[in-house]
């Protein structure tokens, strides 16, 4: 089973990279692009066939290592 994990800065936490990209998009003429946020995408394989069990493992990975929950939030898709 594959886990597809997205880690992004929490809402309200300044994302300087997102801001820089937003300015760049603006200067390219994409004036309506707003609230650009940059994050990380991590995918990994698990031998687990049971989705619920796999999700427990992925959640633990996110909490312990993949995200720093002081500043980041995460979401994942299993499939």
């Amino acid at each position: 089973m594959k886990a597809k994990i997205h880690v992004t800065l929490k809402p309200g936490i300044l994302d300087p990279q997102g801001k820089a990209i937003e300015h760049a998009l603006d200067s390219l003429g994409f004036k309506h692009a707003a609230n650009v946020r940059v994050g990380k995408y991590i995918e990994l394989d698990l031998p687990e066939a049971d989705v619920t069990k796999a999700e427990v493992a992925v959640k633990a990975m996110c909490e312990k290592l993949l995200a720093n929950t002081i500043i980041e939030e995460y979401r994942y898709e299993m499939g």
Partner: peptide, 10 residues
């Protein structure tokens, strides 16, 4: 306690 973010200026 706390965490480090990228420098404001990048």
């Amino acid at each position: 306690p706390g965490a480090m973010l990228r420098n404001k200026s990048l």
